[in-house]
Design a protein around this nucleic acid. Structure first.
Lengths: 227, 227
DNA sequence: AAGCCGCGTCAAGTTCGCGTCAAGACGGCG
DNA sequence: CGCCGTCTTGACGCGAACTTGACGCGGCTT
């Protein structure tokens, strides 16, 4: 999943952007000032950064400069200043794009798509290792004892949803809705059958599951923790 | 010297841009309609294209589409239309940037610098060898057993996208979106047909592909690894 | 203790997706 | 205007994947 960092001191903007980006299946993190923005970049390099120029602590331009001293990550400047000089300065300092407030959310999303298209930076490879099993959800690859195991599309969907919530409980109705769509929330037998084949392929002892465990009457849980 | 193609039907704009660009030591050529623009691109590939959407003959959007079917050259759309939908359409069809008239010359120049800065940094001369097949994606050349094999434009697009992600999975919807544009994400039959002809031309045994492999229900994968 | 409900298992039946082929539509070029 | 390469569209067969129903087991309730 593409990871976007949104930097703005206006909570309303942060909220709007987060909601819209998340709805498009982006992984979003926010920062309200330059210091925390740089920290996030340091910890977990984003695929795109949306950067406001008017920040409370450091000037947005300075943030951009510092950023460029160690990272090539695409930056889209989002600013209320429409003065051409500001744009030129930001662009020449390494910004990849500049969009002025107020802006159309659709346009912003399109510009985000442009930068990700160019860098080809999709999916930072979401992999999970459990003992001798390796699951690469973004690549749809499962490896067990060194050799590839084939999972079907529905099996992958289930695994993906459970894996994204590592450890937490996922209700049956939720799984059914996510995989089969609305209207299938009571077909719990589907889950039984498909979970069975997933376990047959990935569990050491399919009859005593330790990775994909059942919460009777409620749902399922993915437990990647293993010695 | 960086070569810029300016496409606009307004002679005044052509003049202003030419003068300003030439003053910055760009090599400039102009076109007043879509047909001659495409011709120039065919003869002498520009480093950047400034494209107006309102052209007398072909719609600017169509020019962009045709352009993208055979060239990756950076395109900055320059248009009087400020409707967000127009912007989104152009950007999703492959435009790298979008600027609305009237604009500041300085800003336009800055945006030109952004695109050239980007493309100048890349260019990893992209050839792949798999056994007796050689693929030169940047040059659109395929050679098998010493003789050239002809691939059609769509075939090249597919090969290129898969090859750029060597080994990694590309989802059907992604391929369809990238090759045919938004709205074609479910026409998986297109992929079946074109993949078939690609395999017929490049695989040893087209019925048992080893280079372009299918992940049933999910997508395709390019596997250049070979003994 | 008996019965019910939810889960896992299995096998049979059906659908779905892929590859293949061929016919028709489209568009560029002479 | 007609030719030719290319792309689209539909039909078909096959195999994998999914659905569906039956069954047994175990825990929980009454």
């Amino acid at each position: 999943m593409t990871f976007v960092l949104v930097v703005d001191d206006d909570p309303a903007i942060l909220r709007t952007l987060s909601i819209n980006l998340r709805a498009r299946e982006y992984d979003v993190e926010t920062a309200a000032d330059g210091r925390s923005a740089l920290q996030i970049v340091d910890e977990r390099m984003p695929d795109v950064i949306l950067l406001d120029l008017g920040l409370p602590d450091i000037d947005g331009i300075s943030v951009l400069k510092q950023l460029r001293s160690f990272a090539e990550v695409p930056v889209i400047v989002v600013s209320a200043r429409s003065d051409p000089d500001d744009k030129v300065e930001a662009l020449d300092l390494g910004a990849d794009d500049f969009i002025t407030k107020p802006f159309s959310i659709e346009e912003l999303l399109a510009r985000v798509r442009v930068t990700t298209r160019r860098t080809g930076a999709e999916e930072p490879a979401f992999v999970t290792v459990i003992g001798d099993v390796t699951l690469d959800v973004t690549e749809s690859r499962a490896i067990r004892d060194g050799e590839e195991v084939h999972l079907t599309p529905i099996e992958w969907k289930i695994v993906e949803i459970l894996a994204r919530r590592r450890g937490r409980l996922v209700r049956q109705s939720e799984l059914l809705h996510a995989v089969w769509g609305p209207g299938y929330e009571r077909q719990t037998n589907y889950l039984r059958v498909h979970l069975a084949s997933i376990r047959r392929k990935l569990e050491d002892d399919p009859s005593a599951p330790t990775i994909f465990v059942t919460e009777p009457g409620i749902g399922y849980r993915f437990l990647p923790d293993r010695a």
